[in-house]
Design a protein around this nucleic acid. Sequence first.
DNA 1: TTGTATGCGTTATCAG
DNA 2: CTGATAACGCATACAA
Lengths: 339, 339
Amino acid sequence: MATTLREVGARAGVSAITVSRALNNTGYVSLETRERITAAISELNYVPNALASSLRSNKTQLLALLLTDITNQFWTTVARGVEDAAMAAGYGVILCNTDEKQAKEAQYLDLLLRRRIDGLLVAPTVDSTGVLQNLQRRAVPFVLIDRAVRDVAADTVRGDTEQGAYEMTTHLLTTGFRRIAMISGPRTVSTAEERVAGYLRALADAAVTPDPQWIYYGRYTESWGYEAAQRLMAQQPRPDALVAANNFIAMGVLEGLQNLGLHVPDDVALVCFDETTQFKTARFLTTVVQPAREMGRLALNLLLARLAEPQRPVQEILLPTELIIRTSCGCQPQGGGPA
Amino acid sequence: MATTLREVGARAGVSAITVSRALNNTGYVSLETRERITAAISELNYVPNALASSLRSNKTQLLALLLTDITNQFWTTVARGVEDAAMAAGYGVILCNTDEKQAKEAQYLDLLLRRRIDGLLVAPTVDSTGVLQNLQRRAVPFVLIDRAVRDVAADTVRGDTEQGAYEMTTHLLTTGFRRIAMISGPRTVSTAEERVAGYLRALADAAVTPDPQWIYYGRYTESWGYEAAQRLMAQQPRPDALVAANNFIAMGVLEGLQNLGLHVPDDVALVCFDETTQFKTARFLTTVVQPAREMGRLALNLLLARLAEPQRPVQEILLPTELIIRTSCGCQPQGGGPA
DNA sequence: TTGTATGCGTTATCAG
DNA sequence: CTGATAACGCATACAA
C-alpha cells in the first residue's frame, strides 16, 4: 500500500538502511546520496511508518494526559500547555477524561499500555494508588499533575494551594468576616485536604476557632457546590463567607445562593480556586489562580526529562498561586466585624 | 522486556497464534484451552502490543481531532463528545490545536500520518483545501466538523448557523433594533460566511437595507472582537445592536465596550454564537447555542461508519441550533424603534 | 560511507 | 479446533 523505506532506497539506488540513516541523521551518509534520497522521498510521497519504527525502537513518541474532565477550564488550560510543549518536542498526546472514576482510569490505562505510550501525565482520581503502583512496577514513567498521592513517590507538578487557601481565608478575615465556611472536594484528594489545611491555618493565625460543622468535604462538581450552599445557608448561625475549593463548586454555590435569593457579595462573600472567564467578567469573585498552562508545560518537560534520564531523582515542583482580589470593594461583612 | 504472545502460549501449552485467536475471538478455540490461556495471561500480566498488531493489521485504533483551540469552550465540549464516543468504541484520540494556522495543521498531519491513524476529525483552518485533498489522495478517512470546505466533498457535521444567525438577527429586529452590525470571523471560513448570510437574510426579510460598513470580517478571537467594537462604535451613526459571530469575539466586544464606557444591554445590544458559562451567568446575553457535545459524538460515529464502509455515500449532517433569549427584558432599543 | 542479516510482536494465509 | 510459516516496515548489530 504505502511506500516503504526499501522502495525509496530502490529509487535512490541505495539500500533501505541508508535511507533510514539519512532520515534520522544516524550514521554517515554522503551529501550526494542524501540528495538522491531526498528526491526519491518527495517523488514517492514517502511517509515513514512510525509503527514499525516504534516496534523496533521501543519508543512511540506518544504520551497521554489523564485528567478528570476537560470541560473544566482549569484542565483545558493545563491540557493546552501540555499539548504545546509536546508538539514542540515531536510528541503526540492522547487525552483521557476519567471523570474522577477509577474504572475509567483503569480502562484508559489498559488502552494506553497496549499502545506502549512512552509515558503519561496523571491527575489522579479519588483512589489511584493501586493503579500508579502498577505503573511503577511496569516501569512506565509518569508525572503527577495537580495532585499528590500518598504512598506514591513520583515526579509531581502542582500548585501550592495550601498557601493559596491560607491567603484567601486570611483575606476574608482581614476584611472582617469571621463565620467562614469551607466547601471542599473529595476527602482523599490531596488538593481538597490541602485547601482545608490552609483554611484552618489562617483561622488559627487569626485566633478564630474553626467550627467542624462548617467544613464540608464532597466532590469537585457544580452539583456538590449547589447542595453544600443550600445546607450551609440553612444553618444557624449562618456563615457570612464561603470558601469554594474549586471553580465548579463555586459555580454551583452561586446557583444555590441564587436559588435561596441570596446575593454575592451583598449577602454572603464567596472566594474560590481556579480562574474562569466567568469569574473574570463577574468582577465580584476573589479567586486564587494557579498557573495552569505553566503547570502543563512544566509537567510535560519533567516527563521528557525523566524519559531522557530514568534514574534522575524524583522532583516535586510546587508552583506559587496568585490571589486575585475582586470582592473587597463592594463586599462588607454582615456582622461580627473586626475585633 | 514485556511478555509476548509466544510466552503466554508456552505457559498455556499452545502456540502463539492460538492465544491471539482466543484474545481477539477470531477463529475457534476450545473452552478448555481458552481457560488455560486466560490463566496464563493473568499470571504473566500480559499486555498485548498494539504496535505489532497494528503493523500487521493496518489498523491502529487511533484517531485524531484537529481543532483551532481547545481553550474555546465550544471546542472543549466538542472534544469531550468525541472523546467519550471514541472511548466507548475502543479508540484513542490525539488532540491537536491548530490555532487556525495552516503550518501547525500541516505539521500535525505529518505526525499523524506517520502514526498511521485510522482517521481524523478536522475543523478546517482558514485554508485547508490543499491539505484535505492530500488526505483524500492518500485515502485517509476524515470527517469535517463545524466547518465545510469549498471543493472538498466529505462527511460533515456542523450546526445550521445560517439559520441561527437569521434567528438572532430577527430577534433583534423584532425587538426594535434597526442599526445592527455584524462582527464575523475569517472571510474564507464557512461558518463566518454563513453567519453573515443569515444576518443578511434576516435584514432582507425585514426590509432593512444592509450597510456594508457594518459588516466586519476578521478573526474568531477576543482581540478582534475588541478592535471591531472600538471601530464600530466610533462610526456615525452608531450601531444600536451587535451580532458577534462567536463567543471569543463576543468576549472581546464586551471588553471593548467597557473600555468605551458603554454597557450591554443598556447602551447597545449584543447577541452571539456559542454558549459559555460566562454568558449563562451574565444573564443578559442572547446566544445561539450549538449542540457541541452532540456534534462531537455524531462526527465520531460518522467517522466510524466510514471506517467500517469506505464506499458509503458522503453524508452531511446539519444540526439545528437553539436561540436562547436573555436580553429582551432589560434591553430596549435606543432609537429608530419599530416602524 | 554503505550494506547484510536479523528480529521487534503480531496476524494473514495456508495446512492439518 | 490448532499449528507452521511468512510478512508487516523498520532499526540494531555487525561487516565491509
